[in-house]
């Protein structure tokens, strides 16, 4: 018999549907120790060296062909199920962890500002009155410095820096950053915990703010507008608009309240033919900002006749809720440690 006959026979055999054990038997029959391939090789002995080479090669090709076919068939075999099996059964539980929602917001905000070369910093939460107030043009008799507006700590007063307090805003980092860098340019994003004595459904005595600060030659209102616009479009979405409204803060001049267009009513103030319930006539308050007050620049050792800058401070809880469109009836849930709430994130 010729090799091609053997091949034909083999092809015939594998045309039928073969079980796993039949396939196994076929393998032994052809490739086994006493199998057909071995037998074919043994016939080589009587051939001339030229033929040996030629036939040997044919046998090898045939062997390779068999191996390939068998392995193909083998991989196509479906193993019958031995025992009951429900692939949808969740037998093992791997506990899913969670990060605090504020962590997600902080990470996203930091990354948005790092793309435009703002450096993230962190400053003390237990702070001197000087950095939180005096250096920021907030005089000693200002209402914000009352103990009903700011937490004071029982600690000896410092002659230069005043009382020890819990910083009520991230703006205390402004002058600290100017002093760290000694001279402009300044590009800072400061994210920290802040504290104020309010505790109700819309206020927690501890909250988070992020503060942007940019100081350089030739910085003006258009840069503040452009940078906040960039942040808003990155964080909230391309289609959101901002507007500046006049406001008053001691440490900025001019000062602005920043509003962003409402996503629910697309800034129209009307939703489903009714007044939008989420916003005030199409706009939502984002937070305060302004051009750094000359007094503050001087506190940081920077000449306001040469340099100018802008700053803003926004609440993180607020932007997080605004972004996600979450309806949290009681802000206190953020710091309640309620795992039913926290594990949703």
């Amino acid at each position: 018999m010729d090799i091609s006959d053997y091949k034909q026979r083999f092809d015939q055999r594998i045309k039928q549907k073969l079980s796993k054990s039949e396939l196994e038997a076929l393998k032994v029959e052809y490739l086994g120790r006493k199998g057909i391939i071995r037998q074919l090789f043994s016939t080589l002995a009587g051939l001339s060296s030229l033929d040996k080479k030629k036939v040997g090669q044919q046998i090898n090709e045939f062997k390779f062909y068999i191996e390939q076919k068998l392995s193909e068939l083998n991989s196509k075999l479906v193993e019958p199920t031995q025992e009951f099996f429900d692939p949808s059964l969740p037998k093992i539980k791997i506990k899913k962890g969670s990060l605090h929602p504020i962590t997600y917001a902080v990470e996203e905000i930091s990354s948005i500002f790092s793309k435009i070369s703002f450096v993230r910093m962190s400053y003390n939460e237990v702070e001197w009155e000087f950095y939180s107030f005096s250096a920021l043009n907030i005089p000693a008799d200002h209402p914000a410095r009352d103990d009903v507006e700011t937490f004071f700590l029982d600690y000896p007063e410092d002659k230069k820096y005043g009382h020890l307090i819990l910083s009520p805003h991230t703006s205390s980092g402004q002058v600290r950053e100017m002093l760290r860098l000694k001279q402009p340019p300044v590009r800072m994003i400061n994210i920290a915990k802040c504290y104020r004595p309010n505790w109700d459904t819309t206020h927690t005595p501890m909250f988070h703010q992020f503060e942007g600060l940019c100081i350089d030659k030739g910085i003006n209102i258009t840069h503040l507008k452009g940078t906040i616009d960039y942040f808003v479009k990155q964080y909230f979405g391309e289609n959101r608009q901002i507007r500046l409204r006049p406001y008053d803060f001691r440490f900025t001049e001019p000062s602005f309240e920043i509003d962003i267009s409402c996503a629910v009513c697309s800034g129209t103030g009307i939703y489903n033919e009714e007044k939008c319930r989420v916003c005030k006539s199409g706009w939502l308050e984002l937070g305060g900002s302004g051009m750094v007050h000359p007094y503050v620049l001087r506190s940081g050792g920077i000449d306001p006749d040469i340099y100018s800058g802008w700053a803003f401070g926004f609440g993180i809880e607020r932007v997080f809720l605004m972004k996600e469109g979450l309806q949290v009836d009681d802000l206190r849930v953020f710091y309640s440690g309620d795992l039913r709430f926290l594990s949703e994130f």
Binding site: F118, P185, R187, T222, K225, P254
Partner: peptide, 27 residues
């Protein structure tokens, strides 16, 4: 700065263009 505020707010903040703050490397 107070005069700047008075002028700019009446001129209209919405009329001001938006510009990104110039890029610089801060350590």
């Amino acid at each position: 700065q107070d005069i700047v505020e008075e002028t700019a707010r009446v001129y209209g903040y919405h009329k001001l263009p938006s510009r990104l703050s110039p890029f610089v490397l801060v350590k």
